[in-house]
Amino acid sequence: MCNFQVSGKVFDCKGGRFIRYNIILYIAIVLMQLIILTNITLLDGSWNGITMWLCTGIFIFATTIFLLSKSQEQKSGR
């Protein structure tokens, strides 16, 4: 595993790809907000159940990413 730091930001390279966990988590938040906004404004709340399931799935995905990043931090000793 390699880690390097560029202007205060730590990058992990795994298989030649850079993983930025904070960007993945930010995208998850934006996606949830867009789903909720679309449901409320365009669909008048008629898809509340589907919206809830989508947001719950995105939340579980984001929580998994967060926990994986924390476990890698602990393993690397940062």
Rank of each mutant, 00 (worst) to 15 (best):
R78K: 10
V10H: 04
K14M: 01
W47S: 10
I23R: 00
L31R: 05
L68M: 14
I27M: 13
I36P: 06
T38M: 15
N22W: 03
I40K: 10
L34A: 09
R17A: 12
V6W: 04
T51L: 10
F18I: 14
C2P: 07
G16Y: 00
I58T: 10
F11Q: 02
I23K: 00
R20C: 03
S69Y: 06
F66W: 12
I19M: 07
L37P: 02
C55D: 08
G16T: 11
G16K: 02
I35S: 11
G57E: 12
L67P: 02
F18Y: 04
N22T: 03
V10N: 04
D12V: 12
G15R: 01
Y21T: 11
G8F: 02
I35L: 15
S46N: 15
N48T: 08
Q5S: 15
Q33C: 09
L54H: 13
I29H: 02
V30K: 09
Q5H: 10
V30H: 01
T63F: 13
V30C: 05
T63P: 05
I35A: 11
D12I: 11
G49T: 08
F4H: 03
D44K: 14
G16Q: 05
F11V: 11
E73M: 02
S69P: 04
L37M: 15
Q72D: 06
S7P: 01
M1L: 11
M1S: 09
K70D: 04
I50G: 08
I29W: 11
K9L: 01
G15H: 09
V6F: 03
N22Q: 07
S76F: 05
V6L: 05
K70M: 05
I24C: 02
F59M: 15
G15M: 06
R20F: 03
Q33L: 15
T38V: 13
F59K: 03
Y21V: 07
I19Q: 10
L43G: 06
T51Y: 09
N39R: 07
L43K: 08
D44Q: 15
F18C: 09
I60K: 01
K14V: 12
N39Y: 06
G16I: 08
K9D: 00
G15P: 05
G77Y: 03
C13E: 10
K9A: 01
K70N: 02
K9Q: 04
G45M: 10
